[in-house]
C-alpha cells in the first residue's frame, strides 16, 4: 500500500537491519544472503547498447489565455513572483514549444522490471504554485511533498488506480508519500488555494520526462527495441508515436498538439471496471 506509515515502515526497516546485522554476526554467509535479498536488483538495461528518444512537443494555433492568479491576501506567495502569476493549464514556450507535457514509454517494456529508486522526487509548493507543475515518479518511489511557503497548504491527491491522500502542511515541512500502482496521471490539488494544481505520472519504469519551456523532451538509456511513446497534456489530451530505438542510436519524436485538440478527453488514471472487479491487472502502460 501507499506509504502512510513512514514511521512504521522505518521501524520495520530498522528491525530488518538489526536482524540482518545479527545474522551477520553469527553466520557471515546468512547475513550476506539476507543483504543480497534486500538490495535492489541491478538495472536490467545494458548501458553499452542503450539508445535514446529525443524530440519536441509543439503547439500550433492560438494559445489559450491563462487567467491571472489573484493571490489576494497571500502576500508571502505574491512576493515570490516577479510578474503576476497565471494559471498553468497551458504553458507555451519558444518557437511553438509546449511545456508541461508528460512524455513516457507506454508500450515496449513489458518484459522488464526496474528497481525502485531510493532517491525521492520533490513536489515543491513555492509561491503558492506547484514546482514542478507536472512530475513523474516510479511506482513505490518516495514523493516528497514540500511546503516552502510557511503557510497552510493541503496536498490532496485523487488517483483512480491508487488510493489517494489529503495531507495538511501548515508550516515549512516535508511529507513523503508514494503510489504502489502505475497511473497516468494522478491529479493533485490544494483546496486552500483553488488555483494550485499538479499532475503526477506514476510508472513502473524510469522512461518518462516532462517537456521543458521550449518543448524539448528526451528519454535516455532505453534498451534497443520498438516502443509506443505517449505524450499527455492536461488540456489537449494525449498523442502517441511509434519509435524504434537502435543500439546506441537516438530516435526522433515529434508531438504536434493543435488548437483543435482543446477540450479533448484527458485520460486521468483508468476507470475502475465494475463488471470485472476481480479482473484488475497490473497496469500495462
Amino acid at each position: 500500500m501507499i506509504e502512510r506509515f513512514s514511521g512504521l515502515r522505518n521501524t520495520v526497516l530498522l528491525v530488518s537491519v538489526f536482524v540482518i546485522a545479527g545474522c551477520g554476526g553469527g553466520d557471515g554467509g546468512g547475513g550476506d544472503a539476507g543483504a543480497a535479498d534486500a538490495a535492489p536488483a541491478e538495472s536490467p538495461v545494458d548501458a553499452a547498447t542503450a539508445g535514446n528518444v529525443s524530440g519536441m512537443v509543439t503547439f500550433s494555433g492560438t494559445a489559450p489565455m491563462m487567467a491571472e492568479i489573484n493571490m489576494g491576501s497571500e502576500a508571502t506567495c505574491a512576493s515570490k513572483h516577479s510578474t503576476t502569476p497565471t494559471e498553468e493549464g497551458f504553458v507555451g514556450g519558444e518557437n511553438g514549444g509546449l511545456a508541461n507535457v508528460f512524455v513516457y514509454v507506454k508500450e515496449g517494456l513489458e518484459s522488464l522490471s526496474f528497481p525502485t529508486p531510493t532517491a525521492a522526487v520533490v513536489l515543491n509548493q513555492d509561491g503558492c504554485v506547484y514546482r514542478p507543475h507536472v512530475l513523474g515518479a516510479q511506482v513505490g518511489q518516495d514523493i516528497t511533498l514540500r511546503n516552502s511557503d510557511g503557510l497552510l497548504h493541503n496536498i490532496n491527491a485523487s488517483p483512480t488506480e491508487n488510493r489517494g491522500f489529503n495531507v495538511s502542511q501548515p508550516v515549512n515541512m516535508d511529507t513523503n508519500r508514494s503510489f504502489p500502482v502505475a497511473e497516468v496521471m494522478v491529479p493533485v490539488r490544494c483546496d486552500v488555494h483553488g488555483w494550485m494544481m499538479s499532475y503526477i505520472g506514476v510508472l513502473d519504469h524510469p522512461y518518462f520526462a516532462v517537456s521543458d519551456s521550449d518543448g524539448s523532451v528526451s528519454l535516455d538509456g532505453l534498451p534497443p527495441g520498438d516502443y509506443v511513446i505517449e505524450a499527455w497534456h492536461e488540456q489537449l489530451g494525449t498523442m502517441t508515436s511509434n519509435v524504434t530505438v537502435t543500439t546506441g542510436g537516438t530516435a526522433e519524436i515529434s508531438f504536434e498538439f493543435t488548437e483543435a485538440m482543446a477540450g479533448s478527453p484527458v485520460p486521468m488514471g483508468e476507470p475502475i471496471d465494475l463488471l470485472h472487479p476481480d479482473g484488475h491487472q497490473a497496469v500495462d502502460y
Binding site: 490532496n156 491522500f165 495538511s168 502542511q169 501548515p170 515541512m173 511529507t175 483546496d191
Partner: peptide, 15 residues
C-alpha cells in the same frame, strides 16, 4: 473525498 485533510503528519513531524 473532501478538502478536510489529515493532521496526523504534523504530529508525526513534531510541528
Amino acid at each position: 473525498g473532501t478538502p478536510m485533510a489529515t493532521f496526523s503528519d504534523i504530529v508525526d513531524a513534531g510541528v
